[in-house]
């Protein structure tokens, strides 16, 4: 089987009861979820109740640990099928999942840190984010009230974060300019100055862990590609990530230097897979933002794993059952 690139998303990808349709159905997923929830202790119990009851996740303290658990459990599901990650790309809280998948941190340390970090971020001044359909240089002149570019996702997508006042003023400026925007479901002013102090407070917790050099190519949204080994083991690099801009466009650009890999978005949504496609990568997402009945999540996972295990549908015969599963291909006829 060809190696795959795991793509790990951050906040904004979550939906109520995300991936719950796989729980108690997919053994590797279930075991990994139980392991993380148990490590989270009493917070894990609360999160399990929220998750299983299908309630909306409202705070960073809810979104980040549950997203971490789901993305970790989906990564373990991919490995359980015998697939080997040839590269791992993480953005936002997905970076801590990537740290586990590349051997930078043991799972227990990453779980402890995601909880410490989420609790600190939940106490930060209120804020949120918008996605704008334009490249960062086309957006910066419309930022108002202290809003900042939080993520450079590609030539057609920039995420802006800030206080509610800043976002309202920025929205008006964007509308006057005729730029399309939408709200991102992020319950904080992530990747901007609003959460800088909260991240600083978590530094001692990060310094209490030992970070190892990645054993698999690690692509970081914060680094905009592969961090140098000394940076990959620096606690401050990891602790300050939620306050640094996400350079997803640059990180996806560097993914090609690792090799021609099939990309698998191992999270609830499909945003990373869509951006990877724009970089010329072949990409599939395990759940594809499949907000729906549990059996739909199971079917979607089955189709996506078929794609990864069997390889490129175009190299298979046309009557292979899932031959027409939606592989996302780059625009303009490019291929890896």
């Amino acid at each position: 089987m060809p190696p795959v690139a795991l793509l790990l998303p951050g906040a904004g990808a979550q939906y109520p009861a995300m991936a719950y349709g796989l729980y108690r159905y997919e053994p590797a997923f279930t075991t990994a979820m139980d392991t993380v929830l148990e490590m989270l202790g009493s917070a894990g119990e609360r999160l399990y109740r929220l998750w299983s009851s299908g309630e909306r996740l409202r705070t960073v303290a809810e979104v980040h640990p549950l997203l971490f658990a789901v993305c970790h459990a989906l990564s373990e599901t991919v490995r359980d099928r015998g697939l080997r990650p040839g590269a791992v790309l993480g953005q936002s809280v997905g970076e801590l999942v990537a740290a586990v998948q590349t051997g930078v941190l043991p799972l227990s340390d990453a779980v402890r840190l995601v909880a410490v970090q989420a609790d600190a971020l939940a106490e930060a001044p209120a804020g949120g984010a918008l996605a704008v359909a334009a490249a960062p240089p086309a957006v910066t002149s419309f930022l108002r009230g202290g809003a900042v570019v939080a993520a450079s996702n590609g030539p057609g997508q920039t995420v802006v974060s800030g206080s509610e006042f800043a976002l309202a003023a920025t929205r008006r400026a964007l509308e006057v300019a005729g730029l399309t925007w939408m709200r991102v479901q992020v319950p904080a002013g992530l990747h901007g100055p609003l959460v800088a102090e909260a991240c600083r407070e978590t530094l001692p917790a990060f310094q209490a862990s030992v970070f190892a050099v990645p054993h698999t190519p690690l692509l970081s949204g914060t680094a905009g590609g592969r961090p140098e080994p000394e940076r990959a083991v620096d606690p401050e690099f990891w602790a300050l990530q939620p306050s640094r801009p996400v350079l997803l466009d640059a990180a996806l650009g560097q993914l090609a230097t690792v090799g021609a890999l099939l990309c698998a978005e191992v999270g609830p949504g499909h945003g990373l897979a869509v951006q990877a496609r724009r970089h010329g990568h072949r990409a599939v997402s395990l759940l594809d933002g499949c907000v729906g009945a549990p059996h739909e999540e199971r079917e979607r996972l089955r189709q996506a794993l078929d794609c990864l295990v069997l390889g490129d549908p175009e190299e298979r015969t046309a009557d292979t059952p899932s031959a027409r599963v939606a592989w996302l291909r780059p625009p303009g006829g490019g291929s890896v």
């Binding site: 057609g156 499909h270 869509v274 496609r277 724009r278 072949r282 594809d288 933002g289 549908p313 175009e314 027409r324 939606a326 592989w327 996302l328 291909r329 780059p330 625009p331 303009g332 006829g333 291929s335």
Partner: peptide
């Protein structure tokens, strides 16, 4: 947003395929 290759946009069932699966 570009043309999703590997997906047959001429296929009969495109009209009923969720946008996210079309890329």
């Amino acid at each position: 947003a570009g043309i999703p290759e590997g997906i047959d946009l001429e296929a009969e069932d495109v009209v009923d395929t969720p946008f996210y699966r079309l890329g």
